[in-house]
Each structure stands twice: as C-alpha cells, then as structure tokens.
Write a protein that binds this DNA or RNA. Structure first.
Lengths: 340, 340
DNA sequence: CTGTTAGCGCGTTCAA
DNA sequence: TTGAACGCGCTAACAG
C-alpha cells in the first residue's frame, strides 16, 4: 500500500557499501574515503534518504527533547501568562542546545501516567506535582527532573524565588498604604498533589511571609478576609463576587496576576475603586498597558534557570546547585491606592 | 557504573515466561492466563519495571507527539501572545488525544534542519515557512503537515482567516473615523521563506484588502506612509520613532498587536494621542486591560483547528478539508479615535 | 586508513 | 504461549 521510507539498508544495497559505511558517511565522513562518502551521499539524494531521527535517537539512547510536565489541564496551565513566560525561558535554552521542548499535558487526567510515557531526556515541573509515585517512576526511568515553584523540603533540584520574602513585601506594601480591611486570595494549595500537605509549598512559604508582615502591624490572619482562587481570571471573578456579597474590603491581595485581573474586571464593572495587588508580573512589553500593581518575578528567568540546571543533570555534571534562587521585585502600578 | 534500567527481558527471565508474555501482560492481558499476568505484573513491580516509552513508540512506529515548527528564534516566536494562544489551542487538542506537543525551534537557525530531526507524528507551521526543501523533507519522511497562516496557493492543508476581508475591515474602520494621514506598518513578508515571493502570503492577502478599502475612498497606497515591523513590541517602537521623525500621521495601522503595543508605548511617552489599530487580539481575559482597538482572530481556534486537521491526516482519514477558515471580528478599544 | 560483520537497544508481533 | 524476526540506525571489534 503505502510506499516505505528509504532506509540505510537501501542506500547500502544501492551503493554496494555496507550499512556501516553509510552511517559513517553521514556521521563521521572522515572515517571513510572521500570517494565513498560522495557516492553514498549522492545515492542518498537520489533515493530521497533521510536518517530517521527516532531510530537514531533510540540507538543513541536520547531524545533531544526536554519535557515540561503540566500540573493541570492544558487550558488552565497555558492560559496563565506567567506559565507562558516560563515556557519561553525553557524554549530559549533548548534552542541554544539544539533541543526541542515537549509540553506534556496530564494523560487521562493523570500526571503520573504522563510521566510514564514522556519521551524526553529530562523533565521540568511547575508547581507542586512531584508526589511519591511520580518520583518512583522517574527514578526507575533514570530521568532527571527540576522543579519550578515546587516544595523545597526534599532532594529534588528546584528553582524558585524567596516566596516568603516576596509575600511579606507584597502585604507590607498594602499595609503601608493604610489598608486594614484586606481580602487575601490564596492559591489552592494541594490542587494537584496530596503529598504537598506535609511539604513546604509555595503557598505555605508565602503565608509565612504574610504572617511576618501582619505581625509588624500587630495583626493576624484572623483580621483578614480569606479565600482561595486558582490562577485564572475566571476564578478571580468568582471569588471577588462572592466576597463583595458578604463584606467590603479596601484591598484585594492575590497570589497570581491571573486571578487579580479577574478581580479587576469585577471591580471595574461595579465602578469600584477597591485596590488590588497581584503576584507574578507579566513580561515587560505587555506590562505597561495593564497597570496592575504586583510582585514581579521573571517566569522567563525561572524557565531558563531550570532548563540550564536540567542540562547539567542530563550531562551528569556534579556541581549542579540543588536550589536556584531568582530575584523578585515590587512593581508599582495604579491599582494599589492609598487609604485616606 | 550506572545501574541499567530493567527491561522486558529481565522480567521474562525472572518469571520464566517469554518476552512476548510480558508484553501481553501489559498490553493485552486477555491474551494470556490470569495467573501469568499476575505473576508478571508482580515481578515487574519488584524489579521496578516500566516499559520504555521510546522503545515502545519506535516499535509501533509512532511518537505520540505533534510538533510545532517555530518560524524564528524562540524568543521572538513565543514572545508573541498571539502565538501563545495558538500553542494553547494545539495543546488542548493534543491533551484530548493523549498526545504531547513538541515545540521545535529552528536548529542551528535552520527550520529545515529542525524538520529533519523532529521526532513527531505530524507538524504544524506558523506563518510562511514551508519552502521547497522543507516540503521535500516532509514528503520523504512521510510526515503530514498543517500550515497556519501559510501561503494558500499550494496543496498543503491550511488554517487561516479571510485575511483580505479582515484587512479591508480594519482599514475601513480607520477611514470611517476620518483618518487620511495613515501610517501603515506591514509585517515583513519574506522574513523566513524565499519561496514566499511567489506565494500568496498573509501579507499579500491583507494588502489586497487594504487596497479595496482605499479604493472606496479614492485613495491608493501612495497616499499612505508605509513601513514594516515584525510582530514584536521592540520593532513597533523602532518603526514608530522613525516615522514620527519624518512625518505626522493621525493613525497607525499595524498587522500585529505586538507591534501596535510598542507603538502605543512610544505615543504614550510623547503624550501623543495619535490613533492605533492592531491585528490579532489578545485572549479575552487579558484583553480588557489593554484597550487596544484591533481585529480579533482567535489563535486558540486556529490552534485547535490545525491540530484537529493534523490528527485527521495522521489517521489517514480521507475527508479532511484542505482549507479551514476561522472567523474574525472588529474589536473596539479606545485607541482608534475620531478625527475632528 | 578503509571497509565489513555482527550485535545492540527494547518492545511488538507473526508464525508456529 | 513462545522463538525469532522486525523496526532502523549506531558502533565495537576485526580484517585487509
């Protein structure tokens, strides 16, 4: 039926050389005579031969690809501009090294299944996803992994910011502006991983930071209106509407810009001038138009750093740092106002 | 040195069954006795065995991955939010089918090389990249391809909008508002592909649309200030600065929001209220904060449609439409003002 | 230095 | 339920 691809054997047969010779002609031309190389390459051209990269990689025991394990459904994960900037960072480093970047959505809703079937040389995870079963699989598959924003209480290589410090800064800015009726919108902690309940997650770290800030004003969590929202505008809207039903904060503090943007939309609709401060920060260019006050962390830098670390691990370099810290900064916008 | 992964052979040896039996235990348990399945799976657990997905895919002649061929360096491609939404759309469909999405940056700056080495079941391209050499490679590799925003004068499956109509609409809106001193910022046409010079590219189609709109006002291209900019904020800034040096348009018309945003930044800095209209449209949520007036096309829909078509091709379905048309719409913002 | 033989990698599948 | 072949290219070891 369908004509078969030409293989290395076809070229060998056609030229009268051996498969080995053909392989050499492509990969180490110096290993055989100039004449042979020429003949072989010519025959290859005639027969439309291209070595199959899959067979090649299989033979060489590699994939030439890094994998990014999405913690949730693709719509949710990739809908977050922060995650997008991480993807960008990883892709840049991959490109530099001649690698591809494989985005791996949960398989049958299971990150574990996805990890089993990933055909890549190493994995990067986003958020808290590395539970025991996944670690087991990766160990068995001898697949290196780097975690971005993962729990920090284990021996997995990770890249993150000082979440505690960043959160403290975020809330302190709010308190400095005089806000006292504050709605605190956290990220759901254990959305993906159960093991996270005992791990030191990003959310927990940030809460410690909030606590520190509160203490400086002799306040505690009990003085806040608290709720949760995943990092999507949709959830931000929902939670903002719910909160405004039952109370009237002067400021919303969120753990993601995505949620903050949803909240802003609700506020705009109501012509309310309640303050909002987000977390993440969009990349430079697209920043300016949205004047959201936020804590900026560079997803791109995180992506780059994690890919860099992962390549170290893949190449078996020993001196790879277990933790990589990325800087953060307060980014002034127009959505955090002084309380009069 | 490093302990080897356990293979199917290890399980076979340990249980006394054959490789075949082990394979069946995993893939079609009904083919062998219940007892055998149990023993084998238990042994597999003990020995920490997981079938190697690469070997599996190799054997089955597939990859379980779709590829997205980036037309330019990753920073540029992925920096464009429109492209990001395309990625999102593709990823969603991949997820639904249990596939991965492999992002393939140009290899050694060559898209052709990247196409040679892509280990995927099919490719999606963005913009004009399918020149002769790439087509040859894909033909030899028997790799199906779908082109988004590609030239439409060939036999490659493609997904696009009615660019001519959309461009006409865009410029007509501008003319209706009374603008006559218009700066038209096109996309560079043949940035990636030389063959495009004879193909009916997106840029050419849009120019025909502009022409139609101009004719309705008895104008021609000669009445416009024209220039080019790639789809990045950076290039938008550069070109805006250059144009403002030598002339004073009342409106900038661009072929990408990315460039439009750069232009807006320059105008804001100058406190100028020159109008701007873009092309692409950011996804819903993140739209509202940037009030850019633009022609909206859903990158996500394009991504979904192209992946859907590609899966049809991979599965050898015959009834696959050669052209898929996605809708577009005018999106009112605040950056296109009436000329007094 | 040029070229070949043979076997590997790992799971799948046909014929028995 | 199994042995052997297969997919496709790479490479150690060896011969001239």
């Amino acid at each position: 039926m369908k004509a078969k691809r030409t293989t290395i054997q076809d070229i060998a047969t056609k030229t009268g050389y051996s498969k080995t010779a053909v392989s050499f002609a492509f990969n180490s031309p110096s290993r055989i005579s100039k004449e042979a190389v020429e003949k072989i390459l010519e025959a290859a051209k005639e027969l439309d031969y291209i070595p199959d990269p899959m067979a090649r990689n299989f033979s060489l025991g590699r994939h030439m690809a890094l994998g990014l394990l999405l913690p949730q459904r693709a719509e949710l994960s990739l809908g977050n501009p922060y995650i997008h900037s991480v993807v960008q960072g990883i892709a840049e480093v991959c490109q530099k090294r001649g690698y591809m970047l494989t985005i791996i959505p949960p398989l049958h809703s299971s990150v574990t299944e996805a990890a089993k079937n990933a055909t890549v040389d190493g994995l990067i995870t986003l958020g808290v996803v590395i539970d025991k079963s996944i670690r087991g699989i990766l160990r068995r598959r001898r697949m290196p992994i780097v975690s971005i924003d993962g729990a920090a209480d284990d021996d997995i290589h990770s890249v993150c910011i000082d979440d505690e410090g960043a959160a403290e800064l975020q809330l302190r800015k709010v308190l400095e502006k005089g806000h006292r009726k504050i709605a605190m919108i956290a990220l759901p902690d254990d959305a993906y991983s159960h093991s996270s309940s005992t791990s030191d997650t990003v959310v927990k770290k940030r809460k410690r930071g909030y606590m520190k800030a509160l203490e400086q004003y002799s306040m505690s969590f009990a003085d806040l209106i608290t709720d949760k929202a995943a990092a999507t505008a949709e959830e931000g809207k929902t939670v903002a509407s719910a909160i405004l039903e039952r109370s009237s904060p002067t400021c919303f503090v969120t753990m993601s810009d995505a949620a903050a943007i949803g909240i802003l939309q609700i506020l705009e609709k109501r012509r309310s001038n309640i303050s909002v401060i987000g977390f993440d920060g969009l990349e430079e260019e697209f920043f300016q138009n949205s004047k959201l006050t936020t804590i900026y962390q560079s997803g791109r830098q995180k992506g780059e750093a994690s890919a860099e670390v992962l390549f170290h691990l893949i190449n078996g370099e020993a001196d790879t740092p277990l933790r990589t810290l990325i800087p953060y900064s307060f980014c002034e916008g127009t959505t955090l106002r002084e309380v009069l």
